[in-house]
């Protein structure tokens, strides 16, 4: 017996196995490159950005980007209505988008996963109550709920994070609940129960790791939704306060200059689109690589 097992080569580490599947997914790779690029910019914003994002250059307001007529290399992507460097603001804005959408994923993911595990594990009345709550929240357009919550909490980025997190929770609950219910039927759960595993151990140590693949995919999609919703609230004036260079807030300021300074409108939106696209591509790639069952044609 022992001879036979020693002849088999050790299974590849999960990371290597994952990479093997992931690297053949073109979209996923493109997504990874986009996200890495913006992460890099955000991480080293102080070094990369040519100026301070809040610094005002008197007399240099609404200068166009270098490729347009009247633009110069002094301000590569031009300046905004009060004379701040747009490139620097975009770079620092990327940091804001990624950090705060990460908070959204962390907050909604933790709460949603816990509730989903509890609902799926205990079933019965707990499950019915939780799912009723999910139904209620899902019967409202998420942005409407986020607007109401954000206006209750008042403007500010952290409040935006709370508002967007609340509306993202139901997606995690649904996913993890369904996953937990499927895992509950597996022999390993019954086995550890006969060994006297507590409910908490069953949920968080035995079942949760087996829900990781879809959870990672959902978290990636949570990033793109988070970025979109944070920017949307910023655009509606319910998000980041003006001096901050959050992309949605930048767009809201730029609206009035759509005719005289179109680059002010164009550039922040391209950044939002790129990052959201990156996370969506990454999510597709992760889904295919991590969970062949979810693989889409």
């Amino acid at each position: 017996m022992s001879n036979a097992t020693s002849k088999l080569s050790a299974p590849p580490s999960p990371l290597i196995e994952f990479w093997y599947h992931f690297k053949s997914h073109l979209g996923g790779l493109i997504g990874l490159v986009i996200i890495t690029f913006f992460l890099f910019l955000g991480l080293f914003a102080e070094v990369i950005a040519p100026y301070d994002p809040a610094q005002i250059f008197p007399g240099k307001a609404t200068l166009p980007p270098f490729f347009a007529q009247g633009g110069s290399m002094e301000f590569i992507l031009g300046t905004d209505d009060v004379g701040r460097d747009i490139l620097s603001r975009l770079i620092f804005g990327g940091r804001i988008s990624i950090v705060y959408s990460f908070l959204v994923v962390l907050l909604s993911g933790t709460i949603g996963t816990s509730l989903g595990l509890i609902a799926g594990y205990y079933g019965g009345a707990v499950d019915r109550m939780t799912m009723r709550l999910v139904d209620i929240m899902m019967s409202l357009p998420s942005i409407l709920l986020a607007i109401v919550v954000a206006s209750i909490l008042g403007p500010g980025l952290l409040n935006t994070v709370i508002a967007v997190s609340i509306v993202s929770i139901p997606h995690f609950i649904r996913l993890i609940r369904a996953q937990t219910m499927a895992e509950m039927k597996r022999p390993y759960v019954t086995a550890s129960k006969t060994f006297g595993a507590s409910s908490a151990r069953q949920m968080f140590i035995n079942i949760l790791p087996n829900c990781m693949a879809p959870l990672i995919v959902q978290a990636t999609i949570g990033f793109s939704n988070g970025i979109l919703d944070i920017a949307a609230l910023g655009f509606l004036g319910l998000g980041a306060k003006p001096p901050l260079s959050e992309w949605g807030t930048m767009l809201a300021d730029a609206r009035a200059y759509i005719e005289s300074a179109p680059w002010m409108v164009t550039l922040p939106g391209i950044c939002i689109l790129l990052v959201v696209l990156g996370f969506n591509l990454l999510g597709d790639g992760l889904r295919d690589a991590l969970d062949p069952r979810l693989k889409k044609s």
Partner: peptide, 21 residues
């Protein structure tokens, strides 16, 4: 995929920029 990732509040402004302005 680009359409799916579109921030529509920006897309609206871009449409205005192209077709109206």
């Amino acid at each position: 995929l680009a359409g799916y990732s579109m921030p529509i509040f920006w897309w609206g402004l871009i449409l205005i920029l192209i077709f109206s302005v």
